[in-house]
Each structure stands twice: as structure tokens, then as C-alpha cells.
Simulated assay, not measured.
Amino acid sequence: MYRRTLLGAAAALGLAGMAFAQDDPVKVGFVYVGPVGDGGWTYEHNKGRLAVEEHFGDAVETVFVESVPEGADAERVMTQMALDGADLIFTTSFGYMDATIATAEKFPDVKFEHATGFKRADNVSTYSARFYEGRAIQGHIAGKMTESNVIGYIGSYPIPEVIRGINASYLHAKAVNPDVEYRIVWVYTWFDPAQEAEAARTLIDQGADVILQHTDSTAPLAAAEEAGNVIGFGQASDMAQFSPSPRVSSIIDDWAPYYIDRVQAVVDGTWESVDTWDGIGPGMVGIGEITDAVPEDVKAEALDMKERIAAGDYHPFTGPINKQDGSVWLAEGETASDEDLLGMNFYVEGIEGDIPE
């Protein structure tokens, strides 16, 4: 179902500094849901944009707009980019999906790439990362390191991408610590440091000594540092300013090879609409340094899991796994299909509470 494009990126990386036979540079736009200084999601997308500039030099011009709300504002920003001559536009948040499709219909000669969505068109590609692979590794570390047996999770929006992460981390925490309990707070935002910090404090008050997050700022790590004796993980970027404590590792989203590859396709005239969903193996998902706060045996186990996932020898959703209501989802040894993962709308058995509508 998914076409991997990172091999093409590897070839493109060897072409740095080449001169392209064209009078005008290819113009590439980026639409960001948060500020480039968020330290997480948008920060990493912007690193990818800067990598495009460095790689192509004067052959490519990039532009970006940050902190664009999802909805009508997003469509206005995309429309203006297209009117200003953008050849390719990356829209980097799930909530931009309908705006991306609508704008693409108005500008059929402009290429669009939408992050984490599922709606495509002849001039709209979709791309995402298998974040759940990194969540599984975080869950393993969290389950081993918690002393209170309460792990807190800050969820952004109750969409399959986020639910997959909760389930993957819980399954792997529970596998190494049967006494683990999860507390989940939904904040209904990708980036709001005040709300994220408040959610972290709420979870810490409920006894959590490990905080996981699917939000974009460093505020949860700051709250963990303030509380003391609470650990957390970098989200989307390394967030290394919070190591060695409380950050013990991180999930890193590396978009640069993909962005270079897709810009190269526009330059070459070979761009076509594809789905891309890559993970640890191709390098779109990275695991940041596991600090010395993590015991050596736990670190070794986590790195071994990383290697097995990268090699395709282990799938984080391998049965037996039941749904929250006790019904069988995956039998012994069965692995989840991409179709099932993309539509995941349930908690696995053991997680308490309901998924908000």
C-alpha cells in the first residue's frame, strides 16, 4: 500500500551542489501548525526545510508560515502560497487535510504533500512516520523505570495516530511490568505549553512518575523537572536540553531525507502522488540517546528492540492482543495490518477510560 521514498533520498544526497538546468528556482512552501521554535514537531519539520535549502542551494527557494490554525486560515495560507508561485507545498499537520485537498483542487499544477493524513489526489501525496515503533520502545523503558507503577500520557487529539501510540507504549510497559496503570489526559491541541504543563502536573498529582506525550512543546518535560523524581521523553525532537534529567530518551522525526527526495522529484519532473509511511528501519523515526539514568540492562533491551524493529524481525503490535472490552483483536503470533493500524479507534485491554468522541 505504501511506497517508500527514502532510498531515492539517499541517491539525491549525493547530488549536493549540482546546478539545475532551469532559469527560475523551484519554489517550495511549508505550512506549520506551531512555531518553528516549539522544540518539537514544527522544529523538526523546519529542520527538514533548512536541509532542503542547504542541499539544493540556489536551485530551490523555500518559504514557510508558522502557527497556522487548522481550518479556514490554513486554506488561505496555502492559497496565497500557490498564488505566489509555489511549485510544491508541504502541509504539516493532520488537521490541514481538508484544506489541502480544497486548495489542490484550485491549483492542479501545484504539487501538495500532506503530513499524517489519508486523503489523496493526483496532485496530493500523503506521508507519515510510524511513531508507534518509537512509542513501543518508550513504553518498555517506562515500564521498567516507574516506581509508582503509574504512567501518565498527554494526548493531543483522539485520532488513530495518537491512539496507536498510547496502545503501543502501554502494551510494552505492561509486558515488563504487569502492575503498570495508565492515566491519560486529552488536551485537544498540538501545541499549547500552558495546557501541556497543566496536563503533566495533573498526571503527576495522580501519582505518575513517568510522563509520555503526543504534543509538541517541551512544557511537559519542564513540569517533570519541576516536580523532581519524574522522568519523561523528548517528543518529535531530541529535547536534549532536559537531559540527563528528566529526559531519558526521545522519539526524533527526521523529515529531511523525505523532503529532499520529494523536491528532487519536482525538479526532475518525476513527482507523482504516493503514500509514504516509514519508521525506524528507513530512518524516518529515530530514537534519541538513552541516558545513563536508564539502567544498562534496560538500555540494552530497548536498543535490541530498536534493532529488531528496524530489521523487520519484530512488530510492536504482535498478538495475542485483546481490545479493551476483552474481545480478541490479534491471535497469538498475528501482527496488525496497516489497514487496522490506520483505523485504530480503540484502547487495548488493560487501559481504563473511554476514548473521547
Rank of each mutant, 00 (worst) to 15 (best):
D73C: 07
P282N: 05
F107E: 12
G165N: 13
L50C: 00
A51V: 15
G319C: 12
I231S: 01
G71H: 14
G283M: 00
D24F: 01
A168Y: 00
N177V: 13
P25F: 09
A72C: 00
A236L: 11
Y2M: 13
A102T: 13
V162Q: 01
T270E: 14
W186M: 07
A59M: 14
E301P: 00
V28G: 12
G286H: 02
F30G: 08
T276H: 13
T5L: 00
A102S: 14
A11Q: 06
K174P: 02
E357A: 11
Y32Q: 07
G326W: 05
A224N: 11
G279N: 04
I251L: 06
G8W: 10
P158Q: 05
S249N: 04
S250H: 04
F30I: 08
T270Q: 09
P282G: 03
I137Q: 08
A240G: 15
V294D: 00
E349D: 13
Q264D: 05
F118T: 14
K144S: 15
V266R: 03
T126Q: 07
V110E: 05
Y127H: 13
A227I: 12
D304R: 09
G8M: 04
D109C: 06
A265T: 10
G17C: 07
P160L: 03
P69F: 13
T335R: 05
G39E: 04
V124R: 05
R76I: 13
Y127F: 12
D292M: 12
I309M: 08
G269F: 14
V187M: 00
I166C: 02
